[in-house]
Design a protein around this nucleic acid. Structure first.
Lengths: 391, 391
DNA sequence: TTGATAATTCAACACAGTTGAGTTAACCAC
DNA sequence: GTGGTTAACTCAACTGTGTTGAATTATCAA
């Protein structure tokens, strides 16, 4: 994030109402179908208050009536559920060579996505592409502009004090820019800026395998290796917005200590395969290579197991998540192999009797994870009540 | 924590007011001295609202008037500051052999502390000791019972679904108990239950070296080795309340991968010294041993540097804290040595130009850290606005 | 001395949630 | 079926809390 720390502010009528709308919306979303009285019970609001808010949300098209529930005594409760077309989120992922965009509805469904190659890297050119993509998305999906709740912008971290942080970036002009303000003005929308791993984590929560999870971690294969940490439905960004740089942690590998990234990452596997004379550029290449039982890839996977296991153990014990998700720029079959190859130690707080879910999951969103995640930031925000958060 | 997840609830007049009181109180505390208009500006409330709340807080004795500020144009602002005797927090640490208790005032000053040896370990006996300690604390410090804001109870984690989790604990009876309810009834106070590392982290925030920090980590030498994670002023507990089990992470040590706890912990140093024929039981023993340049201790410190450095690097990169604090059951000279021996890598998100603080700090609260932390949980809570948090 | 500046208060007001009584529609037992 | 029970829901009066804008006050600066 752009080091603009969330700031707690005071409550007033307007902010309270907003907060309560989000509380109600979150309950509707979590339940799928729910009646007003039940929302009231679980939210600490009176039925009357919930009734008023529900009327509001209905009028705004955010929810829809679903008939009455029967089978129990008493007046059957009118059920409500999310209205997917009640709001949309625009997501953008800026990569070195291209810009990806996606439009999601409230339910997290992708209703538009597109990739644009990007040769010019100055802020103005990239922004122009993004504006064009926004226009096109709304047109193709026939979504009125005022239904768009916000835009998420994803770019590889880590971030500096304001813009993107140096470290070999070819984009010095970006470093001077307050990204949130910049894009907010360009798109006339509330904007959320995030790194790829964090966004990917949110993507899984909004439409992937992390639905219903509140506390989990996402190990993201991207440029490097990142970890998105979600705690009680909120991203953990650290003091300077650079939490989750898991690629930089030391892990054991065949009797030596190495950086995780050097043993387990997209770059690592590519180097390894190159050394074996194999040119691999896309995830599809990797998928086919794995399917053909390539020995060089098998060797890489073999060496990756130990450091990856160590990293997983570390995350489990430091963060105690409900699950750890693996995803990003790796084909599903490779991810599945890695998940199978990880040694889960018993000496972990994640080892418990009352567990109902696997400790490791494969991400559902594939190659577009981070782009969907950009939009997911907006969706998630619509369901995350929090009085306060300046700007 | 006792796996009772914080739940966001709806806002109403009463909860909003409470929230706002805490927002104002937090501003007063952070500033030391501050006027109403300034609070209003920084909190998003109107001056009038702040005025009303300040009047409330004054009446409750939580703050005190401090004269007017001059030197600028306009009506001089009346300054307010915390009134230390406006509220007190009772903290209890339950150890296998003893019970520690402390009473802190609002400013975080310790105004009472005591240790009681505990031979009986059943819930009733321990609770009786705690009740006795509470009575004695209030008497000795001349604090009226209604000024006590709450009690913090600290016991070594990890916790199970309800009570303490097994793992060799001699206290099976505790496992069936909902600790928060149990102690809340016994002490007639709001109660916060936490593990030692988390409590220790809070102690530093309320009266130690973490004052003013919002996001940091505390490496706690206790029974094992724990990590208290504070993110934006709130503890990170993980999904099941067992985040921070850093003792279980694999780290490199002389070409092998070991668990951090086995190389860096109180138990580890004791075993090492025992093997060298040295009997060490207290921190004071260790302090003297270090002061006398004992070669066995030096050897232990030597071997601890590599694994500890790896752990520090891991925490920095996963969590991106403002600082990492070392403390707990180790004498200051040993902690200082360890801090000096850690290799801080440049390949860390913690390496930044705009840094004003050391990356590593020594905890200020010594041996009582966790006990003070128990009380600090209460104090911190009084300054942490959050609409919602069921029970 | 006078004007500018900024904190503070006052009083009317608006907003949102609460309360308690009353209504409605289903289930259940006879 | 009939009538009692249950629980969701609505209505209308009410309450608590923050906001607004004008008036007041105290200091600085020219």
């Amino acid at each position: 994030m752009v080091a603009k720390p969330d700031t707690v502010v005071g409550a007033n009528a307007e902010r309270s109402r907003n907060h309560n709308r989000q509380v109600v919306l979150a309950r509707v979303r979590a339940a799928g179908q729910i009646g007003r009285a039940e929302i009231a019970r679980s939210s600490g609001l009176s039925t009357q208050a919930v009734s008023n808010i529900i009327a509001d949300l209905l009028e705004d098209g955010m929810i829809a009536e679903q008939g009455r529930r029967s089978g129990v005594r008493g007046l059957p409760a009118v059920q409500y559920s999310l209205n997917p077309c009640g709001g949309y989120a625009f997501g953008v992922e800026i990569r070195p060579d291209a810009v990806f965009a996606a439009l999601l509805d409230l339910a997290g469904e992708t209703i538009f996505s597109e990739r644009r190659t990007q040769t010019k890297h100055d802020p103005e050119s990239v922004t122009a592409t993004i504006e064009a993509l926004k226009t096109r998305a709304l047109e193709k999906a026939r979504v009125p502009a005022n239904r768009v709740l916000g835009a998420g912008i994803v770019l590889p971290g880590p971030f500096g004090a304001t813009g993107i942080q140096g470290s070999g970036s070819e984009l010095p002009a970006w470093q001077q820019i307050d990204l949130q303000t910049w894009f907010s003005e360009a798109l006339s929308l509330p904007v959320f800026v995030e790194n790829d791993a964090n966004a990917a984590a949110m993507a899984e929560r909004v439409s992937g395998v992390a639905q219903g999870l509140e506390t989990y971690a996402f190990l993201y294969f991207g440029t490097g290796l990142g970890l998105g940490l979600v705690h009680q439905g909120r991203l953990i960004r650290g003091a300077f917005g650079n939490a989750g740089e898991i690629g930089h942690i030391p892990v054991p590998s065949a009797g030596k200590s190495v950086l995780l990234e050097s043993a387990v990452s997209r770059l690592s596997v590519q180097r390894h395969l190159n050394a074996a004379g194999l040119a691999v550029t896309s995830s599809e290449d990797l998928r086919l290579l794995y399917a053909s039982n390539d020995p060089a890839l098998a060797a890489w996977l073999e060496q990756a197991a130990e450091p990856l296991s160590a990293a997983i153990t570390t995350v489990e014990n430091l963060f105690d998540p409900q699950a750890i998700i693996l995803g990003g720029a790796m084909p599903d079959n490779v991810l599945d192999h890695l998940i199978g190859a990880v040694t889960l130690t018993d000496r972990s707080v994640a080892r418990r009797e009352d567990r109902t879910r696997p400790r490791l999951l494969r991400g559902a969103s594939g190659r577009m994870t981070a782009t969907l995640g950009a939009a997911a930031l907006v969706i998630n925000q619509a369901f995350t009540p929090m009085i306060a958060v300046a700007q």
